[in-house]
Design a protein around this nucleic acid. Sequence first.
DNA 1: CGCATTTCGATACAGCCGTTGCGTTACCCA
DNA 2: TGGGTAACGCAACGGCTGTATCGAAATGCG
Lengths: 185, 185
Amino acid sequence: MTERGYDGFAIDEVVARASVAKTTLYRRWPSKDHLLVALVARIQDEVEVADTGDIRRDLTVYLTAVATGLDRMRRVGRDGAGEADRSAGVVAELVAAAARHPDVGDAVRGMFARRNALPLRPLDRARERGALPTGISSEVVFDQLAGALYYRLLITGAPIGADYVQELVDQVLSTATTASHPDGT
Amino acid sequence: MTERGYDGFAIDEVVARASVAKTTLYRRWPSKDHLLVALVARIQDEVEVADTGDIRRDLTVYLTAVATGLDRMRRVGRDGAGEADRSAGVVAELVAAAARHPDVGDAVRGMFARRNALPLRPLDRARERGALPTGISSEVVFDQLAGALYYRLLITGAPIGADYVQELVDQVLSTATTASHPDGT
DNA sequence: CGCATTTCGATACAGCCGTTGCGTTACCCA
DNA sequence: TGGGTAACGCAACGGCTGTATCGAAATGCG
């Protein structure tokens, strides 16, 4: 999979290399999509989120980690290290697999949910300190942040650099900033 | 395609119903993915965006139209009208197709770009009126809005109701509101 | 009308995913 | 140690996408 990407990744070759009958593989993973999500679950490294009290910094660190992780999965199966095509790679296949099989969808959503639950606590704490607007759920705020990243990755294909992440966080937190620092800093 | 969804949509049956040789079809659309994006380009209806001067209302109308359009595409190929499964349906296949073939990716990005360029002008005009924070590009603002919708559709599978759209717009515009109405209304 | 070029059709085929049927091996436990 | 259950292996197959080959039809043009 990491060698040739999703297309060049054939079940027949997997069973040949594993010296295993195709029947056995299909007993464990009932489709190629199931196998894919199991692979990604292995590849995915843990993302931890700090909770230092500086919500701007915490969010920036977290989103940067997510962005680099996505960029890494974007390049899975491409040989050229600097391959600059605007493709979502394996993430797009993951999304499609989740849409095809309900149980795969549950698994994929569970994967993302574990990662995405992390910054909710810092967000809630920041709101308690008055660093976030009231009346807006942390979930919506998080949807905007993560959504912008996935939107660029999957839909527009626009690059996701460190400056973009910073601009994103600034825009979301601008309410709180103008509230606590009316001079706009 | 609209009858049975992406899976039950077989090239062999298409050419049979069209009374056309498979060779001919493949001369026009060099893969099933190419055919898919051509179909979606036909299905996709035009979304127009108002520019009344009330940016909050304009954005809400636009995003609601986008959300209902996505929800319609989400149900393509499912018989039950009230089919409430949390699947991204044809949109996910579109994203995967765009990731597989570079030219399909260009076409899909072009489709989305045409729709997404629409609200940029009202956003820019609103900023000129001081109804948006300075220093933040309209593109980032739009990424947050559209991104949240696609994120819910493709990743979390969470529902996208009218109240959610409203909450989204309110959060994004809260900066401007507090700036022009410091009492918080 | 005659001819060349382009387009289309039909069939067969390769590669892949996923399934079926059945025989064989490994494992567990009395 | 023996027997029964569970897991595995093997080969073949069906359905699908995409390709190749070659023949037939249509179209444009002098």
